[in-house]
Amino acid sequence: MQQLSTNQRALVLSFLLLVGGLFLWEAAIPAQKAASELTEYEKLTGAGAPKAGVPPPSQVLVKAWEQLSDPFYDAGPNDKGIGIQVAYSLYRVLTGYFLAALIAIPVGFLIGMSPVAYKALNPFIQVLRPISPLAWMPLALFIIQDSNASAIFVIFICSIWPMLINTAFGVAGVRKDWINVARTHELGPVKTALTVILPAAAPTIVTGMRISIGIAWLVIVAAEMLVGGTGIGYYVWNEWNNLDLTSVIFSILVIGVVGMALDAAFGAVQRAVAYAE
């Protein structure tokens, strides 16, 4: 053990935890009693019928293999491959998210650069920010009259706040010295914004973007459960209605993995724009 690096030791421990966890899960599922052990009374009351229980990991793995080997099949409205469902969810998340970024980052810039704008907009932000994004759903459905666009709107509204607040905070916090350097070099306002303020505030802005994408991915599942039709959130709910818990567990894992990938992507961007003072 001594010769292994910290990473290798962590990897071994992760693997042991996984195996241990799966073993406990498998062992915790009560076995069905064999028909010969049943009493007359139990037979009469139907206890011999297989009970719907939490599926063991082995079944989930089989399901995962089955689904992942053909992720893009499309056999009608209620039977699409996991790849298609994830793609729908990602499409909604990314559309709403980038629309939010398109507004939040310029407005955040403005708020960060102008104390007046900051003070004027702050009360609105403070009231709108704590609203659960799903609370907007009925209003969105009524106004937009389209379930898909409403889901995108919910993503938009939930991802706008962290980006807006972080951009404003990052821009307002840019060191005065750097602004002075820009001023003594006669850089215009646009050039100052792009070559000094943007790179200086980029780490804070990207942190906001990373928080937003995390929230957006959390919210899309709930939003799709409401609007239905397609997407990973709908898939979970649909499989629950089908009482197919194996698929439910499998899709929970898929949600986790996709969320991790989104976060990792923004983590990479964060590292790229980071600087040491």
Partner: peptide, 17 residues
């Protein structure tokens, strides 16, 4: 401010990125 007047600040004021 103007480019005719250059400034060296005490804390260097270099862009860290």
């Amino acid at each position: 401010p103007s480019l005719d007047r250059g400034v060296v600040f005490q804390n260097y004021s270099l862009m860290p990125w």
